[in-house]
Simulated scan of single mutants.
Amino acid sequence: MLVEWLDIIAPAWIAGSLLALLSAPLGCLVLWRRMSFFADALAHGTLFGVALAALLQLPFGVGIALVSVMVVIGLMWLEDERLPSDAILAVVSVSMLCLGLLTLTHLTQMQANVLGYLFGNLLEVGWSDLPILSACVALGIGFLIYIWRQQVILATHTDLAQVSGINATRQRLFFMGVLAGFCALALQAVGSLLISGLLILPALTARLWAHSPKQMVIFSVILAQLAVTGGVWGSVLFDIQTGLAIVLGLAIAFFMAFIVSRAS
């Protein structure tokens, strides 16, 4: 019996742990660069990307990539001194969500899968999915390491970045590309609505206790791994959605850490 359970749970557990290795440092950069709303817009855009791919009979990755490019171009076009940037991002985010839901439920034959795309279904990951996921995560981490120094400088010392000759526009596009790739990978794990939670919550909790960027990344990785482990096993024990269990665990950890930090 235990072997049968492990055959279902183990691939999901490994997949979630792999995603946590990428989500934790990426979430730290999202916080440092103050791009949480942008991450949310991209996360919601993945839903429309899946719907668009299904409608045009394209691979899901192609649809998500197309929508990610559309989001970036749309945000550049919508830049206006009269409009707050966070409000624009909120509009784009909710628009992507509505377009995705509308397309999935009315224009494709994927109505039955809507909940899975909204909240994820990590337990559907099989052993055959792990090699591709591992390669994609390794590629994402490798590229993140390559751009890490420039990204941190841009987030913390804008003047130093200019003096160092760092191309801010190119680095922003690099960062958006990694973020879009992560959203595509995390869609099955936690769904379009919860991707930003998996990204932000570990980094936000770690920020309460960390005294350096390196510590913040390490704490984020540990928290994300614990949340994935607790979420996967908790979803089986309590019969709840895996993505919901993971993100809810992260949210509880944040509020507990916040209360303790305020009391100390």
Rank of each mutant, 00 (worst) to 15 (best):
L204H: 12
L6C: 07
A65N: 09
L52F: 05
F38R: 10
I88V: 15
V221K: 04
P59K: 01
G100I: 06
M256V: 15
A135M: 13
R207P: 00
Y117T: 00
A224F: 01
L19R: 10
F38Y: 12
V30L: 14
L122C: 07
N121A: 15
W77Q: 09
L47Y: 08
A168C: 10
L31I: 06
I8F: 11
H44E: 09
Q151L: 15
S164A: 13
T229L: 15
I145D: 03
L193P: 00
M176Q: 15
S128H: 05
L2T: 12
N121W: 05
V91P: 11
F219G: 01
P131F: 14
S264V: 03
R172N: 10
F37W: 04
L75P: 10
V190W: 05
F143K: 11
F119W: 08
P59V: 08
V221P: 02
F60L: 15
V72C: 02
A257D: 11
L187K: 11
R82Q: 13
G231A: 08
R207L: 10
I259F: 10
L226M: 13
M176P: 00
L187H: 10
L144F: 07
W127H: 09
Q225C: 09
P213H: 13
I64W: 04
L101M: 14
D80E: 06
D86M: 05
S235M: 07
S36T: 08
T229P: 00
V260M: 04
L2Y: 13
H106S: 12
L66H: 01
L187V: 14
I252G: 09
V232P: 00
G16F: 15
F143N: 08
S192D: 02
